[in-house]
Simulated assay, not measured.
Amino acid sequence: MIELKTPAEIRRMHVAGRFVAEVLDEVGRLADVGVNLLDLEHHVRGMIERRGAESCYWDYAPSFGSGPFRNVICLSVNDAVLHGLPHDYALRDGDVLSADLAVGIDGWVADSARTVIVGTPAEEDLRIIRATEDALEAAIEVARPGNRLGDISAAIWAVARDHGYPVNTEFGGHGIGRTMHEDLHVSNKGRPGRGLTLRPGLTLALEPWFTRTTDRIVYDDDGWTIRSADGSRTAHSEHTIAITEDEPLVLTRRDSEDPATKADPAGG
């Protein structure tokens, strides 16, 4: 069942969204050559505990994963793009790091992801990161009452096509609110004018993720980490949004992020 949120409930989601944005800003700041993924994980655990928030990932056991997940953030490096299990790995110069975080505060959830480059950026890595950011902004722009869910998917797909990136449709955006995953799957590929009519109060996590040269994915032996099947590099951008009577409201916008130019992916 699709639950439309009241303005008061959206404000409560915004509280969680601002905290998620703060944590991802911190992860981008800390991601540097030599920093271990486990150190980032433990730093985020401390931030969540101090805030009195609740991780949506801890003990999460969906059908697609090898659960339960026993971390509070997904950290995916280079050809890994989704559900990266933090492990003993020290970041290297030129690594591409995607960080995905969902938390609840007082019963309301927000979810967001960003991709940054550690140390020296390569132009092709900057390009794919910026493509996911452009796709996310394009999707947000059409998330207005009277438009269709397919308009969001088509906006993401159009940016991917323009950049020449294939699109995987197994994982995408989703409804969100009292839990991390509510009804509605938002594909990153679709046709305009199709699907559910968007209404005020609908809250969605939109998350374009692209791989450079394939739409096929493989899983690591950990049962969680998803990689491009051909080892090509990847990027992932995500925001939680609310559809209102007027402009879409981005609940997880980061302080470091200028929606006109996007956050600098070269190291936070």
Rank of each mutant, 00 (worst) to 15 (best):
N188A: 11
T179Q: 12
T197N: 05
S98N: 11
D39W: 02
V186N: 03
L206H: 10
E247N: 06
L40S: 02
A263G: 12
N71H: 15
P166A: 12
R161W: 09
R148Q: 11
S228I: 01
W157R: 07
G94W: 03
W108H: 14
S153D: 06
A138M: 04
I156R: 05
N168H: 14
S256R: 09
E123C: 00
T252L: 09
V35P: 03
E141W: 13
L204S: 09
H14G: 07
L101W: 02
E247C: 02
D215V: 04
R18S: 12
S153L: 07
L136C: 04
V218T: 15
G172A: 11
G94P: 03
V118F: 08
H239M: 07
R178D: 04
V96I: 14
G201H: 01
C56G: 13
G173S: 08
V15R: 12
R212Q: 14
N147Q: 13
D151I: 07
G28Q: 02
A102C: 09
G173W: 02
R130G: 01
Y60D: 14
P166I: 12
V35F: 01
T179D: 12
P7M: 11
T240V: 00
A90D: 14
P7A: 12
D100R: 07
V159E: 08
P62D: 14
A139T: 05
R161H: 10
I117R: 10
V186C: 03
D111G: 08
F210A: 08
H83V: 14
G107L: 05
A16I: 07
Y219P: 00
S112E: 08
D25E: 15
V23D: 01
S63A: 15
W224R: 04
L97T: 05
S187G: 13
I105D: 02
E238H: 07
P145T: 10
E182W: 08
A235T: 11
A229C: 09
R130D: 00
D134I: 00
D79T: 08
L30I: 10
I152K: 06
I217Q: 10
D264V: 09
S55R: 13
K5Q: 12
